[in-house]
Structures are given as C-alpha cells and as structure tokens.
Nucleic acid binder design. Structure first.
Lengths: 339, 339
DNA sequence: CTGTTAGCGCCTTCAC
DNA sequence: GTGAAGGCGCTAACAG
C-alpha cells in the first residue's frame, strides 16, 4: 500500500510537505497541494491509521465494552440496538469503534487501563457490566473519557446515560393499582445489576406509597432469564394465590411467567395481570400481547455516543447524566380486576 | 502508560532485551526474564498494539464489514447472531475484530483496500453486501484474506460460507406438494442479493421438477421487508385465488403476508399455507406459528471466522466454501390441503 | 512555502 | 546473553 514516501518519491516533494498538503495545512502552495493530491489519488493512498495514531497519541477509535456478546442475548435486543445507535451516530463523525466483549478469557487478564492503552482508545462506552465489576472502579479513576449505559457512576471523565426506570416502575405499579390490584408481586433480575436495584426500589416505593401489601414473599428473582423466571414464579403462584398481578423487571422473564401460569391453568389477564420491561419485539406478538415499559436503547446508544464525543473533544459544561424517558405500553396482559 | 523504555529504565536492561524477554525469545537469561516480567507487572505494562502492528505489518485485527448496521435489521437477528459467532470464536484466539458498517456514502470516500490498509487488517469477514457492490470486486482482486457470508465468490484469498439454500427451498416446495398444494407462489427478497437469486432458483427448479404450475404472476418481490411484503402480496391474493401456498424468502416477509391474509379473511393454514425462511425468534411465537427454514447464523459466523484465521495463517488445502445445513421446521402455518 | 531533524513505541538484524 | 542501530509510517518542531 502506498505511503507518504511513495507520494514523496513520485512528486519530488518531501514527506513532510506531502503530509501537510494532505492534512490541509495552509502553509502549502495550492499548486503543490493539487499535485500531491493528484498523486495520492493515483496511488490510491490512504493514511496508515496505526502510524498516525501512534504519533498523535489519540486515536479516533472508541471502544464499546460489553459484558457478554453471547448468543443468549439475542432475544433481548438491547445490546444490539444500542450498538446500532452508536454506529449510526459515529457514521457522521470521523470516529470508529471497536467492539470489545469482556468475557474473553484473554481480556479477563487485562485491566481496563490496559485495554484502553493498547489501542490508544479515545474513549469508551460501557454497557452491561455488573455494579461490582472491577473495570468500573478502574474506569472511574481513569483519565480516559467514558460513558456508561445504565450504570450510574460519575468520575473525572465519566458520565452515564440511563432511563427513568425508577419512575417508570412506579407508574406501572400505580397503573396496576388503578386496575384494582392490591397484591402485586415483583420479579427482579440479577441482583448485582444496577437496573435490578433501581427497579426494585421503584416497586418498593410505589407499593409503600399506595398502601399496598408489602410482603417479602412477593419479591422473587428470575435472574433476567426465562428459565430463572419459571423456577421463581412457580412457588410464588402456588404459595401466594392472593397475588393478582406480577411486575417483571424484564420481558424475557415475563415470557417465562406467562408459560408457567398457563401450565397451572391460570388465565391471563383475567386471573393474573403481567407487566414486563423492555418492550422486546416478541412482547407485541405473543398471545396475550404483553403490557410493558418500553425502553429506547437505540436512542440511548446514540446519546451515549454524542456525550462521549463531546467529552473527548473537551466540551465544557456537559451534564453528568442523560436520562431517556421510557413509555408504558398497555397491551393485553393486564386488565381490571373483577371483584 | 508504561512502555518498554520504562521497564528498561527500571531494570537497567536495554529496550531490546526487555522486548525479547517479554516476547518469549529464548536467547534471554531466565533470571533476567523474571526480573523484567516482574517489573512489567508492577508498571501495569501492556504493549502498544499500534506500535507493534506498525512494525510487524500484521495486525491480529480482523474487520467485519456489514452493509448497514441499521435499527431496522433488529427484527431479523441474522447479523447479530453472526457477530456473536465471530466474537465467540475470536475469544479463544489472539485476534480481535472491528465492526465496520459501510454505507454507500462512506464508500464514495474510501475504497475497500483503503479500509483494510488503514488499519492493517489481517483479514475481513463480509456480510450483507449486494452482489453488485464494488467492494466485492475489490476484495476479489486483493491479497487480503477474506471470507464472505452468503456471497459465493472466490478469488486468490477469498472463500465463503453459506447454507444449502437451494436445496432447502426445494425441500420446502416438495413438502408443500406433499400437502397437495399445486399452486405455489414465491415471494422473493431484494433482487440483487445473492440469497434472493439462489432461493428463487431453488423454487423454479422445484416447481419445474414437480410439474407444478409455472406462472410468472406467482413470483413477487417483497424486498425483504414487512411493508414490501404487504404491498406485493395483496394483488397476488386478489388476482390469483387459486394459489394455496406461498413460500417467502424470509420470515419477516411472511409476517407481512400473514397480516394481509388475515385482513382479507383468508384463514391460515386452512386456506393458505405459508412458509418462511430464517427461523427468526418471532416465528415460533406468532399465531399461527410459522413453518420455516431454519438458518444457523451463529454457526456461520463461527465457521467463517475459523476459515478466515486458517487463511490468514496460511494453512493449505482449505476448502473454498463451507456450507451449513439448514433445517425445515414445521409449525402451524402449513397444513394439508383438503380438496 | 519547503525541507531537515527528531521521535512516537516497538521489533529485527547484527555485532559484541 | 545482551545492546546498539535502524526503521515501520507518520507528524511536530525548527530552520531556512
């Protein structure tokens, strides 16, 4: 592949001049510039980013760090949609991104700082890490700009994007109360995920505020998986038959709940109302279609990227957090409770 | 971040020795090596990949080039699953990948070769490009190893992975014939996508072979979208009522067909049998559940990566193509035709 | 306006 | 065994 040197040889100008001409410095004769541009085109020249970044020490590459690029995450498109948002936003900039999945054994041996400095990353977007992931602490104490998704941490160069989950859950519970439900269970996701914690708080707060029954048995954990949900909901349905509504911290878990309820002959929504969280594609198509809280991961990805680039470019007075508004979507899995 | 020089300063050995010690050369005193390793750990050293690749001219980075990482591709998880396969396979190697989403706009500015040489890519995996995409021609005449997904081209350093689509479609049509269907329509995807072409051939061949009616009006194009399918199927259903089965080149289009049929009061599967292609997640959950040809993009991604790395590492006698076997999954959207 | 010099962090001869 | 020298492709001073 052609290098500056090749162009230099061809045109007779020095490598330096060629470099400056191509990079638009204005201390270059316009005629010279044209000559050089022409030669560059003929040689199909393209700068070697590695060399460029090596010397400039800043790489126009941002790392998207995700916890688990696994086949299993297919059902829940959250990550993919976020990625699309990132990609779309980046398309109109001169940045590019590398997708780094931290499950790889190799990367477990690497610290966050190492990952960043290896590639001279300009910044990172982090998504799906548990609140106790060591990478987070590192990122927090690190100079490298970073935007977290759904992880509320800020540090020197860290900001985050999330959605109004707390309020959304409260809204959903209020809605259930309106439908005459007074015994509302809550199925939580993985304990050490921030989203689980905040959603649970929303539930507790709402239940308290509305004077609904507070019962520790009403709170179970489905680990954000369909299987986990099935296991967790079975005893719930059997042991606390007064429960007439279940709020699930994810749609995928709601799918599991629906299945078990069906197996037990419980009618949805007549005998049991169910609300999910995420608005995954399936939620609209299953029978009964699922009432849920819609998130907008595409927008979150986009906004995270916008924020990150502002951070990288040193823009001042950036808000330390962006909150995207969720939306309660009412479908068939919830209904008014007949006394 | 720590560099070789830092370690050199700390230990007193020259940069050269440090480099060799860390890279496992055996002309280094074991004691020295230990000392250096120790120092490296203390300084949290990690090699600068940019510098490393710059000098070694090979980058252990493979580029995954996709056509358009768009929000719309969410329904059809093909790309995401492929990506998961790539990522999973790479996890056990020392390669990493960059996801490059090309748009026609971007292509104007950068040629394929440029993209590759900019980052010194060791190889590429290409997916979702149309058969007339200029990048393909370039890739074909290029020395850089590349594996295409569902694009049957081979060149000096190019191989591809696909599935037995042709045979799968024939099988599906034979299945419909078994169910007494004699007027089978075919809804194609985007014309200039290879998968459309080959699937259509399979259809034509099967229809011919089985002595079914060949009618140009039976072949419509839904452009691989739900909306496109709706538009295309309406006249089909209205004008050729003798059609009792439709084979769709994608599940997403089948969704559209089902909707329109429903709106016209056509009962599925009693009056109209429908087969899709892809086995997207939804196909199992909708009502009626969709008979379809399952593809295994995860495996395709994995195999493509395996092949690419073999190519990069110069393994000999590689097959020029890997074919993954699809699977006909029978669900509720097809049934035997009662005379 | 243009060229010379130096160096980014690393690796590979080639001496000693 | 170890170190010095040179260079990967590029850019940033500094001269002229």
């Amino acid at each position: 592949m052609a290098t500056l040197k090749d162009i230099s040889n061809k045109t007779g100008f020095s490598v330096t001049t060629v470099s400056r001409a191509l990079n638009g410095y204005d201390d270059v004769n316009e005629e010279t510039r044209q000559l050089i541009r022409e030669a560059a085109k003929q040689l199909n020249y393209s700068p070697n980013l590695l060399a460029q970044n090596l010397v400039k020490k800043n790489s126009k590459t941002i790392g998207v760090i995700v916890s688990d690029l696994k086949k299993e995450s297919v059902k829940d498109n959250f990550m993919f949609e976020t990625l699309c948002g990132v990609s779309d936003f980046l398309a109109s900039s001169d940045y590019e991104f590398v997708l780094l999945s931290t499950t790889t054994v190799k990367q477990k041996n690497k610290t966050y700082t190492q990952i960043c400095s290896e590639r001279q990353l300009a910044g990172t977007i982090i998504q799906g890490l548990k609140t106790d992931d060591p990478y987070l602490k590192e990122a927090q104490n690190c100079e490298i700009p970073s935007v977290l998704i759904d992880i509320p941490i800020h540090g020197k160069a860290i900001k985050y994007v999330t959605s109004n989950q707390y309020e959304s859950v409260k809204t959903a519970i209020r809605y259930l109360k309106r439908l005459n439900h007074h015994h509302i269970a809550y199925m939580n996701g993985t304990e050490n995920a921030y989203v689980s914690q905040i959603r649970k708080q929303g539930y507790l707060e709402a239940v308290n505020e509305l004077n609904l029954e507070v019962n520790p048995h009403y709170i179970v954990s489905g680990d954000f998986t369909e299987e986990g949900a099935k296991k967790a909901v079975l005893p719930l349905l059997l042991n606390t038959p007064e429960v007439t509504a279940i709020f699930c911290a994810s749609d995928v878990m709601a799918l599991g709940v629906i299945q078990v309820a069906r197996e037990l002959g419980i009618k949805i929504p007549e005998q049991l109302s169910i609300i999910g969280f995420d608005n995954i594609l399936l939620s609209e198509y299953i029978t009964p279609s699922l009432t849920t809280i819609a998130q907008f991961p595409y927008i979150m990805g986009k906004e995270a990227t916008r924020l990150l680039i502002d951070l990288i470019e040193g823009k001042k007075d950036l808000q330390s957090c962006i909150e995207i508004q969720n939306e309660l979507i009412i479908r068939q899995s919830t209904t008014i409770l007949q006394k």
